[in-house]
């Protein structure tokens, strides 16, 4: 199935969970990433169980502390 991750369309296995996607996308500091699916933010405790569907739009939000 196809989903959109960070604005990019990707082919992923059917029923992939958020946790699996985080791993597959090699997300840095996965413990601290925020995830939205179709503009709804998912709770961290649901990442392992929440399966994605064809056409879902997923966003990863990262802490970014630099500025000086």
């Amino acid at each position: 199935m196809k989903i959109t991750v960070g604005g990019e369309t990707k082919e992923v296995k059917d029923g992939i969970t958020i946790s699996e996607l985080i791993e597959q996308e090699k997300v840095e500091t996965p413990e601290y990433v925020s995830v939205s699916v179709n503009e709804e933010f998912e709770k961290k405790e649901n990442f392992a169980a929440r399966q994605l569907k064809d056409g879902d739009v997923v966003e990863f939000l990262y802490f970014m502390g630099g500025g000086q």
């Binding site: 840095e28 500091t29 413990e31 601290y32 939000l61 802490f63 502390g65 630099g66």
Partner: peptide
């Protein structure tokens, strides 16, 4: 969005 401060050294710095 970012509910709580991440622990010290958890996020890479510049």
């Amino acid at each position: 969005v970012f509910k709580e401060m991440p622990p010290k050294n958890a996020i890479p710095s510049c």
